[in-house]
Amino acid sequence: MNFTNAIQEGTLKILSKNKKNLVFGLEVTNIGSKIYEKYPSQVFETPVSELASTGLCVGLATRGFKPTIVYGRVEFALLAFDQILTQAGRWEYMFGGNYPCPVTFRIQIGRQWGNGPQHTANYHSIFMQSYGLDIYIPSTPQEAYFHIINSNKQNRPAVILEHRYLTQIKENFKTNRKIKIRQHTLYKSVKNKKKYLIITYGDGLIDSLKTKKYLKDKNIYIDIMNFSYFPFKNRIEKKAIKIAQKYKEVIFFDSAPFEFGILSGVSSMLKINNKNKQNFYYLSPNNSPSPSAPSLAKNYYKNTKDLINLVSKIETDKKLINRKLSFEEVMLWPQDDIGKLIKHK
């Protein structure tokens, strides 16, 4: 199933479990909407009023319901930030506890070809810095499915940041098993030399996995640490930092501008109390919005080619790939089977 189907299946699952699980959003009741066809009394079309409809969900959450509200772009969710950050995130705290507000905000975020400066922003770090919200950033269809299930099980507000770029990636997985939610996943090479580590999250995983696969054929072994769950009390677990501190060459691969972003935080945590000498490399877009025209946008995001060339330059002082990537390779949605990439040994 692809990323979009996984989100739909996860949503169907939670709607089937409890009538107090509700879904709100624009176009959620359109013809062909499976969730609306199956659970019409639990799915609500909202006016184009992000602030009010988010407030409505906050109010419902305080009264024993578990609403999920969907935003087509993070820029639309910005209109509702008072309710997301100031109300939902601080609700239980400001009222002295014992007053949960378990609302889930599903927010589509990040790159998508041709969408330009106001539809592709990466505001992950705003959520990371805000109090009280569990943050989920799925990188695979499996993670997308289980993040929806898990966020619904918690009695806290949650933000699921869904990278639009990943909508068509595929993965086969079993939905009927219990899964322990992990804050990060370490994708190891067979010959683990603890030399290269790519640290990434969200849509950075797919390029990292392709890089790992490509370089393995050249006898260069890379491990990947992918973050996907940032609980509100302990955004980055110490265990992950300790593991990452063991690698000599650490590459931070981000589809959002690096400065003051999620990986910037991880990078600074790595440097604290670190006795090992590590070299850090950063691959991310410049701190500017993403342009719309393909000729401008193709150089904006970093990709597999940039990752491979960075590693090979460290290793051999030579670039491995000199060819220009096609528009499709750089800009369009990847349709890879991420499951196969993960299983690749």
Partner: peptide, 23 residues
């Protein structure tokens, strides 16, 4: 059920509580 000082926030939260009562 609470009071909050951000102007305009209260009414939409209250509407959610009203929806809860209706449901």
């Amino acid at each position: 059920m609470g009071s909050i000082p951000i102007l305009g926030s209260a009414i939409s939260i209250a509407s959610g509580m009203a929806m809860g009562e209706k449901l």
